[in-house]
Write a protein that binds this DNA or RNA. Structure first.
Length: 453
RNA sequence: UCCCCGAUAGCUCAAUCGGCAGAGCGGGUGGCUGUUAACCACUAGGUUACAGGUUCAAGUCCUGUUCGGGGAGCCA
């Protein structure tokens, strides 16, 4: 008999005479002469209630089934006589596949996130983490769908790289040299190699060939960041579009966020409701807002003026030229506008070399998308496509022309205006689930001093 | 990296002013009931993170270390 997944079984319109399911025991309730087994196979949040009675030949074994055990159950799908579920499986055969002794650490009560992080190899078997990782999968699919439907090409940029997307952060060194040996010419590549911090520079090259492209892959930052919003290894989505200015870039960023939140509302209702009930009471209104409200757009200079007029007791004083601090971003998106905000045209002094200089000579065509609870979820810009301007910016920032020769050369051969942005995938998952720690939206998180599993 | 907070049974937490280390859940045993985080009874379970110090007496006070969390910076 072929195995059926529980999420399909529970959607059944009629009783089914014989089915086979396999999964893990979440809990068991014994009565005299029969037992209820809550079975979960990961295909959905809801458990299947299995009714096993003493007529089964191995009923003694079933009585001893423990939480966490893996079983295969054959039986008949029948309407449940009890409250709380439409269907239940009346077992005709229950076979034990894998036992779980009483040391199994997951209980049916609530555990803390901190404890579950210490058993990351098992936490996906809980309701919350199972739901989070199902949503993660669904979001990844939706990202591809969004771009593919708009004619974007999915490209793969290198993970090992010798280039350095200046300003993106500290890098992990990759080497085959034994400890203590420092002769770089002896190393695998003969030059310093690192894990990528961004695929942007390479994505630009592909955009200047294929038109509209996007990357979606792992990136690495060796920053000693100890916050709930930073991980050393995270996934980033980076579209790059030829013949595209900052206005169109912002429009795409907004469309992407709205599409993804809408997709999750439409396709992950059961899992989203779990988060709305137990993690963030305000989640559903937030998601509706993200999916439906037009994002506010405000130039940096105007954002600074709003903050100056706000009379808020900011820890960091505001004036033109400062980078916006977390408290400023929060005020703008959570209080002043009450919805997502795109701040654009930042001073050139606080932004990297590749952003396009505006005509005012002091700002660049950059933008940050700010959302409640998280702050910056997207950072992007129109890239400097003019060779002379780019070379001058690099000289001002003491970057070597030799190292970026290929990047510069792209501005000499058919250079066109182009734009792109980076979206942190984990921050997106935090946004749509209400989970407030990045360590809980990636199955096996990497943070400073933490690389277990 | 900086600031703040924390670490007590497998898990979640109590323990008053420095004075006998406890409960719920989970585990075990038995009972009971178409149950729903089932219920009832009994039961086992502790180097109070680690190392030092103060004190007649330390889970509690002091110093250091480790680990965890929150905030900040860096950023996505």
């Amino acid at each position: 008999m072929q195995r059926i997944k529980i999420h399909r079984l529970l959607k059944s319109a009629a009783p089914i005479e014989a089915v086979l399911v396999m999964g893990w025991v979440r809990t068991k309730r014994d009565a005299k002469g029969f037992s209820f087994i809550e079975l979960n196979d990961g295909s959905c949040l809801t458990n299947l209630q299995v009714l096993a009675d003493e007529a089964l030949p191995n009923y003694e074994e079933i009585r001893r089934l423990t939480t966490g055990s893996a079983v295969a159950v054959q039986g008949e799908l029948v309407p449940s006589k009890g409250q709380g579920q439409q269907w239940e499986l009346k077992a005709t055969q229950v076979s034990l596949i894998g036992t779980a002794p009483e040391t199994y650490p997951l209980q049916k009560k609530r555990h803390t996130d901190e404890f579950l992080r210490s058993i990351a190899h098992l936490r996906a078997r809980t309701n919350k983490y199972g739901a989070a990782f199902r949503i993660r999968s669904e979001l990844a699919y939706a990202v591809h769908r969004f771009f593919q439907e708009r004619g974007f090409r999915y490209i793969h940029t290198p993970i090992l790289t010798a280039s350095d997307c200046e300003g993106a952060g500290e890098m992990f060194r990759v080497t085959t040299l034994p400890p203590g040996i420092h002769e770089i010419e002896e190393d695998f590549f003969g030059v310093e190699a690192n894990l990528t911090v961004s695929g942007q520079l390479e994505a630009e090259m592909l955009a200047l060939a294929l038109g509209d492209v996007y990357t979606f892959g792992p990136t690495f930052r060796a920053e000693n960041s100890n916050t709930r919003r930073h991980a050393a290894e995270f996934w980033m989505i980076e579209p790059e579009m030829a013949f595209c200015d900052l206005q169109e870039d912002m429009a795409l960023a907004e469309a992407l966020i709205r599409f993804l939140t809408g997709h999750v509302l439409d396709h992950c209702a059961e899992d989203v409701n779990l988060f709305a009930r137990f993690v963030d009471k305000n989640l559903l209104p937030q998601l509706e807002l993200l999916a439906n409200a037009e994002f506010a757009r405000v130039p940096y200079a105007e954002a600074v003026a709003i903050l100056e007029k706000s009379k808020q007791p900011f820890e960091y004083p505001v004036s033109f030229g400062i980078d916006l601090q977390s408290e400023h971003e929060r005020y703008l998106t959570e209080q002043h506008f009450g919805k997502p905000v795109i701040v654009y045209d930042f001073p050139k002094t606080i932004k990297p070399f590749y952003m396009r200089l505006n005509d005012d000579g002091r700002t660049v065509a950059s933008m940050d998308v700010l959302v409640a609870g998280i702050g910056e979820i997207i950072g992007g810009s129109q890239r400097e496509e003019r060779y002379e301007m780019l070379a001058e910016r690099m000289a001002q920032m003491n970057l070597s022309k030799e190292k970026y020769w290929w990047y510069l050369e792209s501005r000499q051969y058919g250079s066109v205006p182009h734009s792109g942005f980076g979206l942190g995938f984990e921050r997106l998952i935090m946004l749509v689930t209400g989970i407030n720690n990045i360590r809980d939206v990636i199955p096996f998180p990497r943070t400073p001093r933490s690389i277990d599993f």
